[in-house]
Simulated scan of single mutants.
Amino acid sequence: MTLKINEDFDKRVIVSSNKLAWVPSPMPGVDRKMLDRIGDEVARATTIVRYRPYSEFSAHLHSGGEEFFVLEGVFSDEHNNYPKGSYVRNPIGTQHTPKIGAEGATIFVKLHQFSSNDTEQKIIRTTEQAWLPGLVEGLSVMPLHEFEHEHVALVKWEPNTSFNSHRHWGGEEILVLEGTFHDEYGSYPKGTWIRSPHLSTHTPFTKDDGAIIYVKTGHLPA
């Protein structure tokens, strides 16, 4: 039977990843927290993966593309080293062999979610990039990727910032990287993953601690 986790994209999903237990992968020293998944070891998946120091993962082909953001440590493969804050896109048909160093690494990774026409390979070290002004005072944005209807960015919210009520065409996905993100439905501290379906709405804001979020829009079934 195919493994399914949060597979219904018509439902709003909130996961407190800090409360999830690490589950061993088939590779020694590599553990994961599955946020959504349709499939077994080859799957459409959104996952937080932890590589222990000096762990390795076997060579593999990205048959559906791979997108990841380094949350902690340094992720490495035969092509490059990717420190904390790196955003990487490996399109369909690329391959690599992860081999992690002394610091270990934790990444937020999305697999098998690329358009076949989205062929840009990309490495962005976000700690070296400038923030751009957002649409309202107190909001800063760092665009990471755009293709057709899909948009990916980091968004920095200063304390006590409010944004307009808005509707998500093609859905919205958020991982809270720092601080606490809020909307009229709840409060979401660091480590919270939120997936909101096509045409959902909300009115987000921050309080005294502000927030930094990874956000992707327009990529869910319409």
Rank of each mutant, 00 (worst) to 15 (best):
W169P: 02
V23L: 12
G29H: 00
P197I: 01
T97V: 11
S76L: 06
P204H: 15
T97S: 15
V74R: 12
Q129Y: 03
E66R: 05
E158S: 11
F75L: 06
N160Y: 14
P91E: 13
T47R: 11
R167M: 14
S63D: 11
D77F: 02
T201K: 10
E158N: 14
M27I: 04
R195Q: 02
E148H: 14
D118L: 02
E128K: 09
P98T: 10
E137S: 00
G39K: 04
F181G: 00
K33C: 00
V15M: 03
P26N: 03
D8M: 10
V155E: 13
S63H: 11
W169D: 15
N160E: 10
T206L: 06
P83L: 00
H79C: 01
G134W: 06
F205Q: 01
T192I: 08
E184D: 02
A102Y: 14
S76P: 00
S55A: 13
G210P: 00
P133S: 01
Q113A: 10
L71H: 03
N6Y: 10
N117D: 15
L144S: 00
M34T: 15
T203S: 15
A102V: 08
G73A: 07
I124W: 03
P143K: 09
K207G: 02
P24Y: 01
W157F: 15
Q129V: 13
Y82R: 07
D118A: 12
G101C: 01
Q95Y: 15
R195A: 04
Y51N: 06
Y82E: 05
S16Y: 09
L199T: 14
I14Y: 07
I107K: 06
D209Q: 00
P28H: 07
